[in-house]
Design a protein around this nucleic acid. Sequence first.
RNA 1: GGGCGGCUAGCUCAGUUGGUAGAGCGCCAGCUUGACAUGCUGGAGGUCGGGGGUUCGAAACCCUCGCCGCCCACCA
Length: 860
Amino acid sequence: MNMKETEADSEMPKAFDPQAIEAGWYARWESDGLFVADAKSHKPKFTICLPPPNITGELHMGHALNHTLQDICARYRRMAGHEVLFLPGTDHAAIATQNVIEKQLAAEGMTKEQLGRDAFRSRVDEWYRDVGETIVSQDRILGISLDWTRLRFTMDPRYVRSVMTAFVAFYERGWIYRAPRIVNWCPHDKSAISDLEIDWQEHNDTLYYIKYPVEGGGEIVVATVRPETMLVDTGVAVNPTDPRYQSLIGKTAILPLVGRKLPIVGDAAVDKDFGTGALKVTPGHDAMDYDIGQRHSLEVINGMHLDGRMNVPGLPYDGLPALEAREKVVADLKAQGFLVKEEPYTHEVGHCDRCHTVIEPLISEQWWLRMETMRDKALAASAAGKVRWHPERYERTYLDWLHGLRDWNIGRQLWLGHRVPVYYCENGHQIVSIEPPRDCAECGSIRLTQDPDVLDTWFSSALWPFATLGWPEETDDLKAFYPNDMNSTAREIINLWVSRMIMTGLEFMGEVPFADVAIHCQVQAADGRRMSKSLGTGVDPRGLIEKYGTDAVRAWAASVAMSSQDVRFDESRVEGYRRFCNKLWNATRLLLSSPGLPPTDAPGILEIQEYLEDRWVVSRLSAASEAVTAGIEGFTFQDSMAAAYGFAWNEFCDWYLEAIKERLRAGDPVAQDVAYFCLDNIFRLLHPFMPFVTEELWARTPGHTDFVMRASWPRVELVDIPAEEAFGQVMSIVEEVRAHRQSAGAPPRGGSLHLESDIDRSVAALAARLAWVELVEEIEGGTALATAPGRVSFPAGVGASQAELKRLKELNRVKEELAKTEARLANPDFRTNAPPDIVKKLEDRAAELRAAIDRLQPTA
RNA sequence: GGGCGGCUAGCUCAGUUGGUAGAGCGCCAGCUUGACAUGCUGGAGGUCGGGGGUUCGAAACCCUCGCCGCCCACCA
């Protein structure tokens, strides 16, 4: 530790310059090992595993916000005496990465099929190495105190082993099975995706009414927005309670254009009020139809190839893309007189959330994971209060989803990701194994092929809180740092990620992965739209950092943090926090300019009896430190920021430093001591929020030989209520005198103030000094004060009539308030029902107002 | 179709057991006051989305309507 070397003993520059000070600190913290967690430490542990950003991504406002909040917690806990592990990592983001690579290949005039699976894989590995830790290393400029020695990637061999272990464990429990189901199929990625990966968009489509003839006479009309799917209809369903159709149940309809015979069945899932109340049943291409089909043993026909083209051999629509097939089907229906009518119809259509292609539900063999047991454990953990949500309301989002949970489609038909560890031998035996098996356990065959599917990216993310620590090995890290303590996330991945971490954590580790889940607010663009690169509404945090400095961006992030409301981005607020940094900078300069030897020990021994302002400021500091701590502990970081800002600027700088300027100039050691004590505490309280400027100023102030990052968390308990009341009186007198001075057009200094003897003399003296007036025993004329018994007069100014105007205005305002107050007091119900202290307060207020009126009356 | 959040000063937001409406930015006016003009001082500006109700008293609690945003949902 050799901080003194670079400590600037020289004159401080007049203005705070973020670029100049932020450069060095991160490297020094890192090289001094301040971010590295010690699993052997005896301190209480505090662990956060940073949500792994997509390796394809760029740092955006959401990361800046989320990572800052976690870093506030990490830095705070270190100072408060915890051994902190704050672990960074990245996620392989299978679909997103595959799309990136495929685009690259396309640019080279190639497809992945031409390249082959193995070459594709090495291409991906190369790309991963290339991109490396670009995304997370951007966290360095944000000052995020991550333990880089423990950087993890979901494709690291050790992590892959965790994923395989989890798969096999689930398989052995009998929870993994392969079955055909309707899945959300992305024809572009040629893969199934889960329900949660669907992005719903409103479409203006057409609802077609189609006439199906019924055998033995008559007809039944169905309505659909996807007429091309009728080619593989295998039934017609009506609601059994619908009198219009009851007589048709059991009969057979004839499918137009195809001629297939369709049983007409009764099923309660059919909505009588939609369309005609009759539903064409296409079990191969609609989830509800599939269920109806299962209930009535209807045939399942797959009518689509995996690339979205129609698969209807023998029909003229075979091989057409869905939309073209739709046009042709409609034209033919119209030509043959089956189309009854068309009407405009607006509805939600699912798109792939990675590539935005329209999803086609189709039947497909998939790997599924049964969730019942894990779901029930998760529910029980919540019931037992093991997971606390902040804000609380998000617990319901989570629980509601859990209650409706269905089996999870964990398979993806991609080339990139964790390959399903299932192998088949030439004799059709199946082997499930963490390591690739050499031969078939049943027949000894060595001709094995691995299942082509890979796992949903979220399957590996679900293991993050313990797979990053080495699970399934019983590592020191795992023992020391599981369970983690908090998880901080955007609300859009509560179900996708948080819920699944909770379930797997309970299943494999027997404990919830974290006790607290913080869901931060969403940052919107200034115009209220979503921030997104494609909309051009994104704001790059790096640009902001260049402009205002990291500390300003972080302080802004903290100030919005966990607001119940999403916030519109307002750059002027960031700028405001840069000015706050400058304020701290200059307050420090003022102190350092005070003559005499500065204290050599860390400030702390206080002689605060003599001066009212000293007693007041440490009392306010006590309140601020409590509020800042409570805000961090209670996950309302915005409250912490507001409390620290308000104290440092409005109380410490505006009032306290102004009050002691003369004492500082005179080199009064008590004033220096108290002021240094306050600054010292301000730096520590603000360090989690604004690490750079606080570290820099800490190094520049006396008595500090170690990093503020390693200082202890302050707990100031010097509350002095009488001092706060007395100083409050000072403030209101000073403010009123200043107001009178301005409206009188009097010069900035000078004038006389007389205060009646029931005002404490120390209050009177301090008020006079701060208001730049002379305290006098007698006063001629002048203006009466409303806030205290007394009068003030100024050397003749230009605006005497303005002063008169001001007096009358004030008199009016006071009279109005008195009228309102008296009216409330006159209400007998008020006196009988309101608590006595409220009544007393109001009576006191009325008395004050009457006194003020007396003083404000013209002197005649 | 369910559910959640929001609607407070021109703008962005605070307002935690109901008890005289706040901050920052912006605006107006005055200050080169020996830390800071990235500053200091003073000021203007709000029927707390509309309407009901509970209460002595509502921005806060209840009902209702209206917008804005989000999440969940196998109605074709």
